[in-house]
């Protein structure tokens, strides 16, 4: 179990960051991250070998996130979803601009097809195309196609911020 503890400490932050990119609140995110590591713990406990813990964790995290978001879509209205935001940032500084910016990015991501959104989120995590393929279940040869399509779709939606960045 020492190996498990090392993996836990090593990957907790990156899994948390990945999970927070999905439309979840902070409690949901914490629960999902815990749930993902419980699944890994059970693997170790039953003596199963996990060859690539990083991709394994990403894969499980992505599946749990997609399931959680889609389950909520079925049961709750859009209004209640918009309230499910991380509450920590505005308690530190009441930055309306930041919240507004986040909302634009999140809604732009929502306009993508699910696998395009997944590819672009994993890309933002700095994963290689091979890792993206393994985590998302998309063919390796289709990763670049999905990625360039997603970026093209996001271009007009995130244009304003893109030019802001260019001027920086």
């Amino acid at each position: 179990m020492e190996q498990f503890n090392d993996i836990y400490k090593q990957h907790y932050t990156s899994i948390y960051r990945l999970v927070s990119k999905f439309r979840l609140n902070s409690h949901e995110a914490e629960d999902i991250v815990q749930d993902v590591f419980v699944k890994l713990y059970l693997q170790f406990n039953s003596g199963n070998q996990v060859q690539y813990p990083k991709t394994w964790l990403y894969k499980v995290a992505v599946n749990v996130c997609i399931n959680t978001v889609s389950r909520r879509k079925e049961t709750e209205s859009i209004e209640s979803v918009s309230q499910l935001e991380f509450g920590t940032s505005d308690s530190l500084e009441t930055n309306i601009d930041q919240n507004e910016r986040e909302e634009i990015i999140r809604s732009a991501l929502l306009k993508l097809k699910e696998h395009e959104r997944l590819v672009v989120i994993l890309y933002s995590e700095g994963l290689s195309y091979k890792e993206i393929a393994e985590v998302s279940g998309i063919k390796f040869t289709s990763v670049s196609q999905n990625l360039s399509r997603a970026l093209e779709k996001l271009r007009p939606l995130l244009k304003k911020h893109y030019y802001e960045m260019l001027n920086q």
């Binding site: 948390y16 927070s20 990015i105 271009r155 995130l158 960045m165």
Partner: peptide, 18 residues
């Protein structure tokens, strides 16, 4: 630049654990 910008923007919505 577009790819970098979008990466950066997506990462800006990400949260880190306390």
């Amino acid at each position: 630049l577009l790819a970098q910008s979008i990466k950066k923007q997506i990462n800006s919505v990400a949260k880190l654990p306390e």
